[in-house]
Design a binder for these strands. Structure first.
Length: 569
RNA sequence: CGGGGCGUGGCGCAGCCUGGCUAGCGCACCUGCUUUGGGAGCAGGGGGUCGGAGGUUCAAAUCCUCUCGCCCCGACCA
């Protein structure tokens, strides 16, 4: 393509509302423009990159037997009511009515739609398994869209759905999918990790996320420094503590005045004990009212673990006013002793003795609290969030490391969650009716591109991994107006085209510096610079975006080597 | 949804507190001349009515009220 014909509106300065590098650089490179909060237009250069990601995804999906479909983005409410998600999905579901006042939503995901199609058409185990996928725009009315294309409300997603007659089959698919996803992200040139994950509102029994490691990531990934266990921190298991022998002296419960000492740090300092000797009581709210979670004073409670332990639909921390109105206890002094609600206890706390808790009175704490004697636990389980340095739950001697990650892919085994509520049944080889077993598998397409920028940039701009680059080579004439250079450029362009290389020819009447700056901003892996002096010697210059290294090659013979050079660019 | 911040040509900003001439600057854009291996120089030029509505005032970008939008920090998600 000729640069002068392309719509690539580059910017010298990044817009003030862009926070993360990928957002800044993608706007500056003229790839995207914002329309509204979390809603972006993809401009030609951005689309070229998006198509690259899509193509890689298609190839890997097809390789494991996926069949591409294209499902409606506007979906009737009835389907969602059937699965129960019309209510459950909440405000994130963009709802609308047509002229007949019938309710619809803009699809945030497509389990309902695909399940509906499959249940109508698939009746026999002979037709299973089946894997479908699509690449399509989704809309989720996020509470807080941010970071440009990384977390938009409207975004491009690859979503795949599989249907199976039995558990073994879905597990085979799941393993294939792990491999396919790994291939995809590896081919995109990303440094990623596959981690265990919570399945969230999509539901289901088993799931993994694919995380691109980057400081700007919104998730935290915990992984063992010794074995290969890796998990989203929201799911990462804590090692079950060794049984601690009870101390010789079991102290009695003792109420001590602690005026104004509300935080763990304050209480620890005031009573001259370590935070590890204090037990925090966190009050949470769910559909049944208030519940309490107990973790050691130096720990953070993990609400997802608590939610999963209880098995409730939703759970979040209760606000102070609500707690006070129900319990008449001010925050900071709540404790588990004789507390009138269900109490869930972290297994670390269950092994503790002689600890400190709130006394359920303003300005007072208990010391000498004993778990077995003083606390009526509804259940004991793994409730605290793991931290860097914590022991690995899967191997001896390993310790957790924690890093930030961008979730670019997420795969789930759904089981029969949707097939049973929506009656997607089939007849097995004994003529017996069963619910299909399902899996679903998503990739954020735009997010993958953004993540690639997060991982591959410098102060000059983007450094695209070759497979995602909008063009692999940019030809930069020192002065395009001069006949000899123009001819050489055009010849180069043609030769590279014949070699199957996507080439951008910067034919603009700009000064050389401008062309360099733009090509660096755009992140094109290889520059070919054609200038008068080198040309007189029958040479042209090639320069790597990543390393900045440049060398002279013979013109035109040296061009035949470009495909090779791109492999290592 | 709670907390904070910001809306002034395409982009980045100043002006606002202490109302007052044709609303200013850098970049970008147009024209001309000079320049030309790293975002050129000079000269000339076009474009905004200050997010919107209402109010106070002789006078509002500036003060007041309401409203809309966007961004950032927290709970959700590809």
């Amino acid at each position: 393509m000729y640069y002068s014909k392309l719509f690539i509106p580059t910017l010298k300065q990044s817009p003030t509302d862009a926070e993360v590098v990928s957002h800044k650089l993608m706007v500056r490179a003229g790839m995207i423009r914002q329309m509204a909060a979390g809603i972006y237009s993809i401009l030609p250069l951005g689309l070229r990159v998006q198509r690259k990601v899509e193509q890689i995804i298609r190839e890997e999906m097809d390789r494991i037997g996926g069949q591409e479909v294209f499902l409606p983005s506007v979906q009737p409410a009835e389907l969602w009511q059937e699965s129960g998600r019309w209510e459950l999905y909440g405000k994130e579901l963009l709802r609308m009515k047509d002229r007949h006042d019938r309710e619809f939503c803009y699809g945030p995901t497509h389990e309902e739609v695909i399940t509906d199609i499959i249940r109508r058409e698939i009746k026999s185990y002979r037709q299973l398994p089946l894997l479908t996928y699509q690449i399509q725009t989704k809309f989720r009315d996020e509470v807080r869209p941010r970071f440009g294309i990384m977390r938009g409300r409207e975004f491009m997603m690859k979503d795949a759905y599989s249907f199976h007659a039995d558990e073994t089959s879905v597990q085979v698919m799941y393993e294939n999918m792990k491999q396919a996803y790994s291939n995809i992200f590896r081919r995109c040139g990303l440094d990623f990790k596959m981690v265990e994950a919570d399945s969230g509102t999509i539901g289901g029994s088993f799931s993994h996320e694919f995380m691109v490691l980057a400081d700007s990531g919104e998730d935290a990934v915990a992984f063992c420094d010794t074995c290969d266990y890796a998990s989203n921190v929201e799911k990462a298991a804590a090692r079950v503590p060794e049984k601690i022998a009870p101390p010789k002296e079991m102290e009695e419960l003792n109420k001590i005045p602690t005026p104004g000492q509300k935080s763990v740090e304050a209480v620890a300092k005031f009573l001259k004990v370590s935070p590890q000797q204090i037990v925090k009581t966190l009050i949470m709210e769910n559909e049944d009212g208030l519940v309490a979670g107990l973790v050691r004073g130096d720990r953070q409670i993990n609400p997802i673990k608590l939610k999963n332990l209880i098995g409730c639909d939703w759970l979040h921390s209760a606000d102070e006013a609500l707690i006070f109105s129900k319990t008449k206890i001010p925050c900071g002094f709540i404790g588990p002793v004789a507390l009138d609600m269900k109490i869930y206890v972290d297994h670390e706390v269950a092994g503790m003795h002689n600890f400190v808790t709130g006394a359920n009175n303003k300005d007072a704490h208990y010391t000498g609290v004993q778990f077995s004697r003083d606390i009526k636990a509804a259940q004991v389980g793994d409730l605290h969030e793991v931290q860097e340095g914590d022991p690995c739950p899967k191997c001896d001697g390993g310790h957790y490391q924690v890093k930030r990650g961008i979730e670019v892919g997420h795969i789930f085994i759904l089981g029969t969650k949707y097939s049973s509520s929506m009656k997607a049944h089939f007849l097995d080889e004994h003529g017996k009716e069963n619910s299909m077993i399902m899996g679903c598998y998503g990739i954020g397409v735009g997010r993958t591109a953004a993540a690639a920028v997060e991982q591959n940039h410098d102060d000059k701009g983007i450094i695209w991994p070759v497979p995602l680059a909008p063009f692999q080579v940019v030809v930069i004439p020192v002065k395009f107006e001069e006949d000899s250079q123009r001819t050489a450029c055009e010849e180069t362009y043609k030769i590279l085209g014949d070699l199957g290389i996507e080439t951008l020819l910067d034919d603009r009447p700009e000064r050389l510096g401008v062309k360099f700056k733009d090509s660096e901003l755009l992140g094109i892996p290889l520059q070919i610079i054609i200038g008068p002096k080198n040309l007189e010697n029958g040479q042209i210059e090639i320069k790597s975006r990543k390393t900045g290294a440049s060398e002279l090659i013979d013109f035109p013979a040296g061009l035949q080597d470009i495909p090779n050079r791109l492999k290592s660019a």
